[in-house]
Design a binder for these strands. Structure first.
Length: 296
DNA sequence: CCTTGAACCTGGGCGC
DNA sequence: TGCGCCCAGGTTCAAG
């Protein structure tokens, strides 16, 4: 679910409910997700005020007035939702019996905002997500954030930068682009989509896009533009569905209907005049979708 | 260092 | 209806 555009959409969806709100209490329903929650996590968060939300790659950042920042990763199945009011239903309430989904509510922020009490609930069936907390001034040294490469939408990502990273690499482009140390925020969907836009085969060795002298070959310029565009388009699509549905669930919004190759095995390629059929292969244990006709 | 594969977890979909 | 199998948006660790 959550690659960079989805986390950005979640951040925007949570902003109104969380920014400026007082955290009456953080309630943890279990001791761990993928990793144990930090030492005295509830104590460090309860009683604080949220001064802002941020994002780095696929990490949601929640800034507290204590100078600490909560670092939240949604894994494969994590989501946030907002509920009005201060407590769950009462016995006799139609909604009281905990639904199947609520069994996976692991962390609940009990908030007091300008418009009254509400809860922001983190749900994660597979528990591949995790949370950490660190001093804001030390964020760049956090073990989860430390080694991350540049954001795909910023100026730091350039053909020259990728040429440097790709030089001499036999690794397929698919794997090279999934590496968060090279570009932070791309996942399985958007790597397939970006390579399709750039007409590049996912199996092609990353090093073939670099000249002997370490300069970017022409397709690398197109790849950088494709990465930027696909991420920007997805954020825009998330944003538009956000306005309609106040989407905080990390779902793909309307963009999923715009996938060109992802999950479209056997369907016609959408490159004008191509006529190819989308194929699926497995690379490093994960599905890759591409058009064998127009991707080289 | 490079690259792959298994592991972590639960749920949904499909074939039988 | 149930069972077994495969698949799923991510990351880390061990092993080749």
């Amino acid at each position: 679910m959550p690659e960079l555009p989805e986390v950005e959409t979640v951040k925007r969806g949570l902003s109104a409910a969380m920014e400026g709100a007082h955290i009456k209490k953080l309630e943890l329903r279990r001791g761990d997700l993928r990793f144990p929650f930090p030492e005295d996590f509830e104590g460090q968060v309860s009683g604080r005020t949220i001064i802002g939300l941020g994002r780095r790659a696929k990490y949601l950042l929640i800034d507290l007035d204590s100078g600490k920042t909560i670092i939240s990763h949604l894994g494969m199945s994590g989501s946030f939702r907002i509920e009005a009011g201060s407590a769950s239903g009462t016995p006799g309430d139609f909604h009281y019996e905990r639904s199947k989904d609520e069994r996976h509510d692991h962390a609940i922020f009990h908030l007091e905002g300008k418009d009254g009490p509400r809860r922001v609930i983190y749900n994660d069936p597979r528990r591949f997500g995790f949370m950490d907390i660190a001093d804001r001034s030390e964020l760049q040294n956090n073990p989860f954030l430390f080694a991350l490469g540049p954001e795909p939408t910023g100026n730091e990502l350039s053909a020259a930068y990728l040429a440097e990273r790709f030089a001499g690499k036999a690794q397929p482009l698919k794997g090279a682009l999934l590496d968060q140390k090279t570009i932070a925020g791309l996942g399985n969907i958007y790597v397939s989509e970006a390579l399709w836009r750039a007409h590049l085969m996912p199996t092609r060795a990353a090093g073939t896009l670099v000249t002997k002298t370490g300069r970017p070959k022409e397709p690398l310029n197109l790849l950088v533009a494709s990465i930027r565009d696909v991420i920007a388009d997805a954020i825009k699509a998330g944003g538009s569905s956000l306005r309609d549905h106040i989407q905080t669930d990390g779902s793909l919004g309307y963009f999923q209907h715009a996938f060109s190759v992802y999950d479209r095995e056997g369907h016609p390629c959408r490159t004008p005049g191509c006529g190819g059929t989308v194929s699926r292969i497995v690379q490093a244990g994960r599905s890759t979708f591409y058009c064998p006709v127009c991707q080289k």
